[in-house]
Write a protein that binds this DNA or RNA. Sequence first.
RNA 1: GCCGGAGUAGCUCAGCCGGUUAGAGCGAGCGUCUCAUAAGCGCUAGGUCGGCGGUUCGAGUCCGCCCUCCGGCACCA
Length: 667
Amino acid sequence: MRFYLTTAIDYVNSRPHLGTAYEKITADVIARYKRLAGVETHFVMGNDEHSQNVFRKARELGEDPLAYCDRMEGEFRDVWARLTVSFDDFIRTTEPRHRIAVQHLAQRCLEAGDVYEGDYEGWYCVSCEAFKQEKDLVDGLCPIHQRRPDWIREKNHFFRLSRYRDRLLAHFEQHPEFLMPEVRRNEIVRLLEAGLDDISISRAGQAWGIPLPFDEASAVYVWFDALINYVSAVGYGSDPQLFARWWPAGLHVIGKDITRFHCVVWPAMLMSAGLDLPTQVFGHGFVTFKGQKMSKTLGTVVDPLDAADRLGPDPLRLFLVKEIPYGSDGDFSWERFEERYNADLANNLGNLVSRVTTMVERYGGGRVQPKGAPWRLAGVAADALASYRRAMDQLALHEGASAAFRLINATNEFIAESEPWVLARRSDTGAELAQVLYDAAEAVRVAALLLLPIMPISCAEILRRVGEATQVDDLRLDRDGAWRTGAARSLVRADPLWPRLEGDRVGLIPATRAASRTEHVVTEPLNPPAPPPPAPAPERPSVPAPAPAPVVAAPTQATERISIDDFMKIDLRVAKVIEAERVPKSKKLVKMRIDLGTEHRTLVAGIAEAYEPDALIGRTVVIVANLRPAVLMGIESNGMVLAASPEGGAPALLTFDTPPAPGTRVR
RNA sequence: GCCGGAGUAGCUCAGCCGGUUAGAGCGAGCGUCUCAUAAGCGCUAGGUCGGCGGUUCGAGUCCGCCCUCCGGCACCA
């Protein structure tokens, strides 16, 4: 039995945060579980490096892009090592083996007739710097600039994704386990039913990326490039033997935001190239911090190393696995983390190890040996093992952890009810005492075995203390998970594994290390970031560009420092709202007529959820006056109203103590 | 707006095909043993199972409508 497991590869424009670590940790638990279950496992992670952001970031830092990526690899590997993520291989998209695979696969898609050169022809408005669809034009003119767009062509390669809709739907029908959890599957199936458009897979004239084999002037689009890591890492196009050994993958562990890429685009690419599809894709949820999305600007990013330093990597791993139903979103807070640490580790498991080893030392001379039939704990352990396996096989990692803890709790109960200290005082209960101590030690051994994939370091130590003779890596669930009888074992008493936290713990939380560690990565602005720059390259309108979503959850965009000159390019003006009305059929859009002092303009703002149009009339606001016009819901918007936009919250307009005259420059 | 998901004890959540007094863990309170990290063990929660109506002998558990929250898409310039 073989099992090839992957996680999403990560963008390298910032250090991994807790959410990224969550994915790797849960995947690592799965990998370790499979190995423990005797399955030959190949676990691969990596970095996604061919992004323009990475290129820009390196340039900003005055570094060679590749050198920058090398450095980031080191940072990522350090984090994964600290969290004991046991990957077997680490793939980078700048590696030769990856380039070979990408070009190979692109070539196969081309040969399958699925890649066509879309030297797309279309209307292009020079003023807008954007393609226009026929339906956008009014009397053949750009509605914004009242000028005739040019008919131009831009070379682009497209992948015939549309061709695979039916096959994908059929696959989903025949293999309901292909995408888990179910919520994600429903979303994708609906998306497929709605139909698919072909997608662009190349960008012309980009140096940072992999050239298309049949058009060296075009680079493979970064997400197309990135997905291929799953096969390049196992030798596709470069090592046929290795490839045959591991492909198809048993499981891709990814974030729920990128299921489309993995369950629509990726399988279609594989079908086109004549490769088997992975058995399963699992879209895990996100980890929030105190209920809020982790965001640099909100200061809600938790560095996984801070968490690991605080209580240890194993407690962090247990927390993430046991407290968050795998597949759902979950929340992290220091309070909760410490609460769980005390309850599960200090009070239950850790204390159990202490009391058992102490009693064995005191009442049994440090050795245990059964003197009869096992008591009730043997049955509990067998049940725990069974439900643990059932849960883990279904990727219900949290239930697997709970099953192990049921055994731990039962062992504590067992000790209370069998009262070894009473048995030890009597002279006629030697056999009973021996059996009770043996059973308790054996139950701890089984529990530690079950938790070994989740807490590898600590559980290895527990196994050592309860006299497990087998090397940790050689332990196997079916053989070693069974209740042992007969042989005597020596136990070791040692310091508490997880000292209980007392008192005002939260105050001791280390200052987030993000600041000290990321100075070379991000400089935080004091204020919310400026609105994003205008959309970069024009896209073929009839063939929507793939969402900019990378193959990992996009890290919060780093806001780069700009010069005063750059800032002065932005023309901020005071404006007064003269008319405001809801854009019909829209959820957030308000259409406004504003007074800029010298002129009146129409613009559209996405603030309807927070402001009633009527309440806006007469109000003084700040707008970006020199923004390119855009058409929203058929309305031309000439400018952007500034508002604070909290993550997931309602926007709040900028206001003045005393409204200045319309047209006043803001800076 | 469309399409999904969810609303169950203070908190986090279980509750399969409808069926006796609705559960677990944490927290809190009380009691208790003493091997243990002032840990363990036992007891204690009287919760309109979001609301209204319906099907049924009987509904968190099925149906309809409504409310709230979350996610995806559409429209955040």
